[in-house]
Amino acid sequence: MDETGKELVLALYDYQEKSPREVTMKKGDILTLLNSTNKDWWKVEVKITVNGKTYERQGAVPAAYVKKL
């Protein structure tokens, strides 16, 4: 869990989004888990830093590609 009490997951593999509802992640990324009720796809929040600014993006990733921490 992070400092706000939200559950975290670890990306076990790289994943490139294939639709606007998904998010890209790299192996080793730590993501915030938002919903894991679907056994195949979990909704997560990814933090992306671009030019020193951090953005948050929500989307789905394959459940088999992440592990709860």
Rank of each mutant, 00 (worst) to 15 (best):
K39P: 14
K67E: 14
A11Y: 04
E22Y: 05
Y65Q: 05
I48W: 12
S19Q: 06
K68A: 08
K39Y: 06
G5K: 14
N51W: 04
V61Q: 00
K67W: 07
A63S: 12
Y65L: 15
L8N: 05
D2W: 12
E22S: 05
V44F: 01
P20L: 08
D40P: 00
K68P: 08
G5W: 11
A11C: 12
N38S: 09
D40Y: 15
N38A: 08
V46R: 08
A11P: 02
K53F: 12
D40A: 09
S36Q: 11
W41M: 05
D2R: 14
E56I: 15
G28E: 02
E56A: 15
Q16A: 12
T54W: 08
R21Y: 14
D29A: 05
L8P: 03
G59I: 08
E3F: 12
W41A: 00
E7C: 15
Y65D: 05
L33E: 00
V23D: 02
I30C: 08
T37V: 09
L34N: 01
L69T: 05
N35Q: 10
D29C: 08
E17L: 07
L12R: 03
T24Q: 03
N38Q: 09
G28H: 03
L33R: 00
D2M: 14
L34W: 03
S36E: 15
V9C: 13
K26N: 06
G28C: 07
E22A: 05
K6F: 12
R57M: 07
K39H: 10
K68G: 06
I30S: 01
N35K: 07
N38E: 11
K6R: 14
D29N: 05
T4S: 13
K53H: 12
T4H: 13
A11T: 03
E56V: 15
E56K: 15
N51C: 10
L33G: 00
T49H: 11
K47N: 08
Q58F: 06
Q58S: 10
K18F: 05
L33D: 01
Q58V: 14
Y13C: 15
Q16D: 13
M1H: 14
V44W: 01
R21G: 15
E22C: 06
K53V: 14
G28Q: 01
N35M: 06
M25D: 01
N38H: 11
T32Q: 08
L69I: 13
N38L: 06
W42Q: 00
L69C: 14
L34H: 02
T54G: 06
M25V: 09
K68D: 04
G28R: 02
I48F: 11
V66L: 15
V61E: 00
R21V: 10
V46N: 03
K53A: 10
K68S: 06
K47R: 12
G28A: 02
K67L: 10
G59Y: 05
D14G: 05
Y13W: 09
S19G: 12
D2F: 13
K27M: 06
G28P: 01
T24A: 04
T32S: 07
D29G: 02
D14Q: 01
W42K: 00
K26Q: 09
K43I: 15
L31W: 02
G52Q: 05
K53Y: 11
L69P: 00
E56N: 14
S36M: 10
V50Q: 09
V50H: 09
V46K: 12
P20G: 09
K26V: 08
D14N: 07
W42A: 04
D40M: 11
W42D: 00
L69A: 03
Y15W: 09
R57C: 09
E45R: 10
K27I: 05
T49W: 09
L10M: 13
K67P: 05
P20H: 10
L10V: 15
K47Y: 10
K53T: 11
